[in-house]
């Protein structure tokens, strides 16, 4: 590990405010944030079509429509996921510190001592309220969307990782953002990160 390197990995349930927390942590520690913007970086670095890559961001592999030959997979989802993993590995290997949202980062960057693995969850009603307001949809639709998105994230994660998505044993800290609220959750995690950095 590069001296002082810190990588904050934020896994999250849909509607738990995980992305908001990650953004605030990145601001607080003046670190770059890697979320779906990672695709833009990849596209501009390699001169690629961003819209084609974004389509497959954190999308689970369609097993029935995929085949692997000598280690080569036709699955665009799998190949795009591996592109992102390689990008994150390169950034970490260069000694960079950053905040990363999802993308199996708690496992693919596990070899780095500076990795802090956090999972954000929330009560269902809290998640429904948040999604309802952001997406401007009914409570029922919000609940359906939450189930759908969490299922997608879980399938995506569990295909590439040995540890299961949301299983507390895979993370340093699992926090229910409902209890403290989003901003206090940010403060709480920031305090934890500082303590870890000083260890």
């Amino acid at each position: 590990m590069e001296k002082g390197q810190v990588i904050i990995s934020i896994g999250r349930e849909y509607g738990s405010g995980g992305h908001y927390i990650a953004t605030k942590l990145a601001e607080k520690f003046s670190l770059p944030l890697y979320d779906s913007n990672l695709m833009s970086d990849l596209a501009s670095e390699k001169n690629l079509y961003l819209h084609k890559l974004k389509k497959y961001d954190e999308v689970p592999k369609k097993r029935l429509f995929s085949r692997t030959v000598n280690g080569y997979s036709n699955s665009p989802e799998e190949n795009v996921a591996n592109l992102q993993f390689d990008y994150l590995r390169t950034k970490a290997a260069e000694g960079n510190s950053f905040v990363v949202v999802g993308r199996c980062s708690e496992e693919i960057l596990a070899e780095y001592d500076g990795l802090i693995k956090i999972f954000i969850l929330a009560d269902m009603q809290h998640k429904i309220d948040l999604v309802k307001n952001i997406e401007r949809i009914s409570a029922k639709s919000a609940e359906n969307l939450i189930h759908q998105m969490d299922k997608k994230r879980k399938t995506y994660h569990n295909y590439y990782c040995k540890g299961k998505w949301g299983d507390s044993r895979n993370y340093d800290l699992c926090l229910n953002s409902t209890t403290l609220g989003l901003d206090d959750s940010v403060e709480f995690i920031a305090d934890y990160v500082r303590r870890r950095m000083n260890k």
Binding site: K46, K52, K55, N74
Partner: peptide
């Protein structure tokens, strides 16, 4: 096999080809 390998090489270089 050629289809799998060809589409995989394209995707690994950032050109995913869907069904």
């Amino acid at each position: 096999s050629a289809n799998v390998v060809g589409t995989s090489v394209a995707a690994k270089n950032g050109h995913p080809i869907g069904w």
